Computed example of a mutant assay.
Amino acid sequence: MPYVNIRITPGATEAQKAELIAGATELLVKVLNKNPATTFVVIDEVPTENWGSGGISVAERNRKAGG
C-alpha cells in the first residue's frame, strides 16, 4: 500500500493536482508493479511563508523579486 506525499506551494489548479495524482500512481504501477487501487497520493499545499531555501522563505524571496 504505497503512500506518496507531494508538497507544493499554493497555486496549482484542481486539474493540475489531478494530473499529479494520476502521474504518481501511474509511476508506482509501472516501476514497482503496485496496485493503483491501494496507492494513496496526498497533496499538501504549504504556504510560501512556511517554505524556504537558501535561508529565506519563498514569500520573502517573492517580495524581494517584486520590489
Rank of each mutant, 00 (worst) to 15 (best):
M1F: 13
M1N: 06
M1S: 15
P2A: 04
P2Q: 07
P2R: 04
P2F: 06
V4H: 03
V4N: 05
V4A: 13
I6N: 00
I6S: 02
R7A: 12
R7E: 15
I8E: 00
I8Q: 01
T9E: 10
T9Y: 08
T9I: 15
G11V: 10
A12E: 03
A12D: 03
A12R: 12
T13K: 08
E14K: 10
A15L: 09
Q16W: 05
K17V: 02
K17R: 11
A18F: 01
E19N: 10
E19T: 08
E19H: 07
L20F: 12
L20H: 03
I21N: 00
I21M: 05
A22S: 14
G23K: 02
G23Q: 03
A24R: 01
A24E: 03
T25E: 08
T25C: 07
T25R: 08
E26N: 11
E26W: 00
L27A: 15
L27I: 11
L28G: 02
V29H: 00
V29Q: 05
K30D: 13
K30A: 13
V31D: 11
L32E: 09
L32Q: 09
N33C: 02
K34V: 10
K34N: 09
K34C: 10
K34E: 11
N35L: 02
N35T: 13
P36N: 01
P36V: 06
P36K: 03
P36L: 03
A37F: 10
T38E: 11
T38A: 14
T38N: 03
T39C: 05
T39Y: 05
F40I: 12
V41A: 01
V41D: 00
V42A: 14
D44N: 12
E45S: 02
E45Y: 02
E45G: 04
V46L: 14
V46S: 13
P47M: 06
P47E: 11
P47T: 10
T48K: 14
E49M: 03
N50S: 14
N50Q: 15
W51E: 04
W51R: 07
G52I: 09
G52E: 11
G52N: 06
G54E: 09
G54T: 05
G55N: 08
G55M: 07
I56A: 14
I56M: 13
I56N: 12
S57Y: 06
S57W: 04
V58A: 12
A59E: 13
E60I: 05
R61V: 00
R61D: 04
R61P: 00
R61G: 05
R63F: 10
R63P: 03
R63V: 04
K64M: 15
A65N: 12
G66M: 10
G66Y: 01
G67D: 10
G67A: 09
G67N: 10
